[in-house]
Design a protein around this nucleic acid. Structure first.
Length: 219
DNA sequence: CACCAGGCAAGTA
DNA sequence: TACTTGCATGGT
């Protein structure tokens, strides 16, 4: 079976088992970007607390956030963990927004995908996964997102080597799948959801994993 | 109690 | 270049 056929069957199996994901859970593209920064190596439920707190204070906008002193911003996002580091990263991103588009995120819609990706990656605190999350879920570009669950699932099923880096994994999907924003959106979301329930770090437990029967490999 | 969560950058040799 | 380490709250 071709890699494309395999990846499409994996998608279908996950989608049939779990249904649509409805990602990214946010009201604005800015909220998506902020969430992408705050959820780095952090449980999403912690991020929800912080976002909700900001929302109640009507601070979920770039300009007001940039005006906040660093310590205040850090306290506001305390629930996400790494709050001092992340406050700094949020500020870096906000400064980038000011300089690049004058806080008007709609202007990014005119940027070529690769151009925008490179600019995002140049911001302190935005690595490949965060950049691709913003591209896909905030700016609706066909940029496949790879995360720890993606790597774990591919590795457990022996589809890639253990030392495969981010770019290689991204290409593993993008080289064969069509540039389809809706497909990439749902595919990544499903991988995360499957990973959370069936592909834990220490134990495999894949007895009932939707991918188990398809890949005939359960570790 | 230990372990993990939708990473990234800086430091070291 | 190739490993380490720091960052930190909240849930299981």
């Amino acid at each position: 079976m071709s890699r494309k056929a395999l990846l499409m069957e994996m998608f279908q199996a996950m989608h049939e088992a779990l249904g649509p994901s409805g990602w990214w859970p946010a009201e604005t593209s800015f909220e998506v970007c902020l969430g992408a920064l705050l959820t780095q190596n952090t449980n999403w439920s912690n991020v929800e607390k912080a976002i909700q707190g900001l929302k109640e204070k009507d601070l979920l906008h770039p300009q007001p956030l940039l005006s906040l002193p660093d310590e205040i911003l850090a306290e506001l996002i305390r629930p996400v963990g790494y709050f001092r580091v992340k406050a700094d990263r949020v500020k870096s991103f906000l400064s980038f927004l000011q300089v690049e588009v004058g806080f008007d995120l709609d202007l990014f819609m005119d940027y070529p995908m690769v151009t925008l990706r490179d600019k995002l990656l140049s911001v302190r605190g935005i690595g490949p996964e965060t950049a691709d999350s913003m591209l896909l879920y905030a700016f609706h570009r066909p940029s496949f997102v790879v995360d720890a669950y993606t790597a774990r699932i591919l590795q457990r099923h022996l589809l890639i080597a253990e030392d495969t880096d981010y770019h290689e994994m991204r290409s593993f999907f993008m080289d064969v799948l069509s540039e389809d924003v809706k497909l990439y959106n749902e595919y990544h979301a499903l991988l995360v959801r499957v990973g959370k329930h069936w592909c834990k770090k220490k134990k495999g437990l894949c007895q009932t994993c939707p991918l188990g029967p398809l890949l005939e490999r359960t570790i």
